[in-house]
Simulated scan of single mutants.
Amino acid sequence: MHLPVLPPVRPMLARPAPQVPEGRCYEPKWDGFRTVVFRDGDEIELGSRNERPMTRYFPEVVEAVRASLPPRCVVDGEVVLVDADTGVLDFDRLQLRLHPAASRVARLAAETPCALVVFDVLALGDEDLTGLPFAQRRARLEELLPVAPLPLDGPVTGVRLTPLTRDRDVALDWFDRLEGAGLDGVVAKAEDLTYQPDKRVMTKVKHVRTLDCVVAGYRPHTSGPDAVGSLMLGLWDEHGGLDSLGVIGALPMARRRALVDELAPYVTDLAGHPWDWGGAAEGLTDAQRRSFGSRWNAGKSLAFVPLRPELVVEARYDFLDGGRFRHTAQLSRWRPDRDARSCTWDQVERPEPVDVRPFLAGGG
């Protein structure tokens, strides 16, 4: 490639904040795969946040870039998958798009096509735009990608320009109203912000909820069995089964080591444990498969240490997608006062589904 900004580029990041700040440019926070797109003629590369190429997984996005973007450019955006029936972002099925088999990639591209939502431009032709203020980059982006008509049924495909407002009240409305569409929250950017790769110079405000969960086991840390890697969480369903929700993984190393001793009295055998599936794949529900499986690392150890389902933690999370935490939950506190059997789905708040397609088509 011969571009003024060359891959790999780590995208510019955002620092979390509890409230939407005043006096900024505001965009919805899309929840998909962050992607920096490089195009030099017929050569197109989709680079992920961790600098790994994703080009082979999204052939339909590559074709959309070829059809919609200038012959030589670099843009920053998000690959998203919108449910064709509901118009809600579907991160669970988006993860399934990362499949090693070429035949499977082609089939999924036809069955669950994705779109690229663009929110920044880093280069055009021979011009490096990263040193320009964001307001100017946004103006250039609007020239490239004017808001295009979008069918209000079926999948969302192609290359789309993200909505933007400078009205904080509008941004607050987006934050509240579009949670049901699967959006993460709101991103705020200063008008004079230059593009700074891998630096947290934007602001993000995300939805935060809490949920009391059963701790049903833990996975050992990659450093060895003397530290906890992640706590495995569940909720009791109406049939008496324990559904897997996901994990809490962000803990200080000293706390990880201390937890091994603290959890030792609760360690049990799989026999009689709610997740005693015998290691067999046949007959498992999707939730059970995800409890053992890893879409991101095929070589990851899937063994876990089962615990008697008696301990409860309050977990902070942003969104439940398909009965699972969309992202790794955070530990808020332990709840020794809470009966584990009371941790059921009844406590879960579910926002009303909202169709994102009119919003993305410029409907506000």
Rank of each mutant, 00 (worst) to 15 (best):
R316I: 02
E191N: 09
S230M: 03
Y195L: 08
E63L: 05
R290S: 01
L302N: 07
P358C: 10
L311Q: 14
T268K: 14
G364W: 11
E238V: 11
R97A: 08
V65G: 06
M202F: 12
L320Y: 08
P220F: 05
R219D: 01
P7G: 11
V187D: 00
W296N: 04
V62L: 04
V348D: 01
R104K: 15
D286L: 05
R66L: 07
R138H: 14
L172I: 03
V201G: 07
E262K: 15
L6A: 14
L311P: 13
L46K: 13
P146A: 00
Y26R: 11
D167W: 12
L178S: 02
L263F: 01
V186E: 00
G224K: 12
A106G: 08
F134Y: 15
G47A: 09
A250G: 00
P133G: 06
V215R: 13
L183G: 03
D42N: 15
T328S: 09
D212V: 03
H221D: 13
G293F: 04
D42H: 14
K189E: 08
F304L: 08
K189H: 12
R326S: 14
D76Q: 07
T328A: 10
G87S: 05
D198S: 15
D337K: 11
T203G: 05
L150T: 04
L311Y: 12
D318Q: 12
S294W: 08
D355M: 08
E191S: 14
L132K: 13
R138D: 05
P146V: 01
A14Y: 06
S301H: 11
L150H: 02
P274V: 03
Y218A: 01
G293A: 04
P163G: 05
P306E: 00
R341A: 12
P7D: 06
G182T: 09
P336A: 02
V9Y: 12
R357Y: 03
T222Q: 03
V61T: 10
S223K: 04
D153T: 14
D90K: 01
A14F: 12
A110Q: 15
V313F: 10
D83M: 12
G23Q: 13
E349P: 01
E282K: 15
C213P: 05
D321N: 10
M253G: 02
Y266N: 09
V118H: 09
P252S: 05
A264K: 15
G154Q: 09
T55Y: 09
A264W: 07
L183P: 02
A329W: 03
P252Y: 01
K29T: 02
L307H: 05
R49E: 08
W277H: 14
E127P: 01
G217D: 00
V65C: 06
